[in-house]
Design a protein around this nucleic acid. Sequence first.
DNA 1: TCTGGGGTCCTAGGACCC
DNA 2: TCTGGGGTCCTAGGACCC
Length: 421
Amino acid sequence: MFALVDCNNFYVSCERTFDPKLEGRPVVVLSNNDGCIIARSEEAKAFGIGMGNPFFQVRDIIERHGVRVFSSNYTLYGDMSSRVMSILSEFSPEMEVYSIDEAFLDFSHLENSKMEPVAREIRKKVKQWTGIPVSVGIAGTKTLAKLANRTAKKNPLSGGVFLFDGKEKTKVLLGKTETRDIWGIGGNLSVRLQREGIYTALALVEADDEKIRNILGVCGLRTAMELRGIPCIRLENAALPRKSVCCSRSFGKEVSTLEELSEAISLYTADAAERLRHGKLAAGVVSVFLDTGRFRKKCQYYFNSISKSIAVPSNSTGDLTGHAVSLIRKIYRENLTYKKAGIIFTELSTSESVQFDLFSDTPAKFAKSCVLSEAMDSINSRFGDGSVFYASEGTGKSWAMARERCSPHYTTRWDEIPEAG
DNA sequence: TCTGGGGTCCTAGGACCC
DNA sequence: TCTGGGGTCCTAGGACCC
């Protein structure tokens, strides 16, 4: 048995923990660059503000109803997430942290009659210790546990906990579930299913395997099996090795010069390289991309990307910035205004097992640049991000993303700790 | 005027091998 | 005149998740 614990309106709940006046009031949180709505309190949902709506399109509703708006504060949400996860880990020997706000727990060690009471205890403890409300869905497969969680969230009578047991109960619920709401079936596959006359999870479960395989491929067949109660997706309790690390961002204003783009790419490289080092990884391939933005109709659209293998995998900000900046020069075009740029590292290996080039002196150089980057990391971690940085990032950063409504870093900066009284 | 960011996996088609 | 069969690997694009 699996329990899926999912935080309710997680980002909004994080803001509320530190500003209780937000309780009971409509609140939304925006994506990076203050672009889209990515979290909504129940009150905000009731006004018809949709998930993923561009901010400017719902601005009227927001102003009319006095909805409180926050820029995303991932430092805060990440820190609150690890607090929640550490509490959850006490409730099961096996846990998979599935995303910033949800985790699967293995409940096989519990007797059936104990599952709901334990789930209620989880809710109580997480709420009391972090201020975050959670919902729990319990079932025999992960896909059904996701569905159970949805039911727990939607149905006020459930008290935030829902357990799938008994064939009839399951059948009734599958009949009420649209295919789009199944974990693993997105918008496109759902349209394909509709064309074949399959509208609900129940219809999918009752369809012929060969037919499902044809419409949805092997993943879809696996999903159908899971809905039938046959586990096909196991708990991934050990964090799998990463295959890529990416950093990309939209600009706060239009950018057209190579200088500004190089600055932005330098910053993104520094950010992604820091994450490589944190994961004890080194990149074998560096890719960068440029984008003029897909929503502007008047200007010419231009997207391009370029990759380069590097002889000795690296995680040094200095090395990688050199590669990234030289790549961006190759795809830069004049007389365009860019909205976004980014860097992706792939072909990752562990930094302890880097294969050096036999005919060069790279081991010594490698060691030196590692020491430098690590020294920068420790200064930045002690004195705050951006205390030391490469000058190639620039000092003005006029292109930096907008985040005009960011709450304080309540839990990670001494000067922003909340004060009482 | 203003539309996010970071990931994973599968599939089909082409190139190549013997 | 007649022109096979069985593979692997890579890539781009598409699907999904949060």
